[in-house]
Amino acid sequence: MKPFRHINVPGVAEAVDYLNKFPGSSRLIAGGTDLLGVLKDDILPAYPELLINIKAIPGLDYLREDENGLSIGALVKLAFLARSPLVREKYKVLADAARSVGTPQLRNMATVGGNLGQETRCWYYRYPHGIGGRIQCQRKGSGPCLAVGGDNRYHVIMGGKGCFAACPSDLATALAALEGSIKTEGAGGGRIISIGEFFHPLGNALKAGEMIVELQVPPLPAGSRQHWLKYTLREPVDFAVVSVAVLTVLEAGICREARIALGAVAPGPLRALQAEQFLKGKEPIPEVLQEAAVLAVQGAKPLSKNGYKVEIARVLVLRALEASFAGHK
């Protein structure tokens, strides 16, 4: 790994300060599981001069529930989130999503903030500098997206523009089903970004000098059930090929609310609004769920090699809905 300077900061204000003092040449490090891989492969045109260690900021690893819902400090580790009885009990998709990330050691290190802020896994973007030089692309500021004419088996089937890399964050998918949001701090103060607004095709909504400090989940609809499914070739290690988080409310056998969030099919987590709307007020019989599953990916525009993701997404939606509705009994 090429050298960099490193500073420990005692608080969020100092972290933001340093980010702004070294615009473009500094990076935050918390778990480091994504960042250090990026630096070792030297994939970015600009190598950071300074790493700002936020790991030791006290009080940023909290898990709190009150009348406004659940708040998760950015430094909460994935392993902690996955194990938390509260989260497992009430925010099941979040615990399951956290547990599905990487490997146990990675989850012992990686933070929730980092999971949302991590770099994409597009293999063109990630191509190591050491083997003939990094690959330039739209996401890095110049050049075409090579996935379009290349091997795009893991890329998006919806919402790509300029870049067709899929959102790598499993937490994002779960948060989308829970209608969560991300709280940030920056030079101009903090803001709250809904999870649906956080990702865009070329990156995320964080401005220069802004950092994630908290994940927020509003109170859940009464009597709701949740289900998480992640399709990968192997259970550990892999990033999602497709993931689905659903939340359902069933009253007297009728679907009152259904939220369906799809992961790894678009630049960010994608709510299947049409399917959700279709389910509302209906009895979740097999035909209805199948129709909803088809609607969930309607309008998908797969690339040359990822049409199979459309089919998998449909099946995952169907299975997740079946499981979630079954949970109401």
Binding site: Y127, L146, G150, D151, V237
Partner: peptide, 13 residues
């Protein structure tokens, strides 16, 4: 990748 002549998955993920 048979346009670039690069192996796209030189990592253990």
């Amino acid at each position: 990748d048979k346009k670039l002549g690069r192996i796209l998955n030189p990592n253990m993920v």
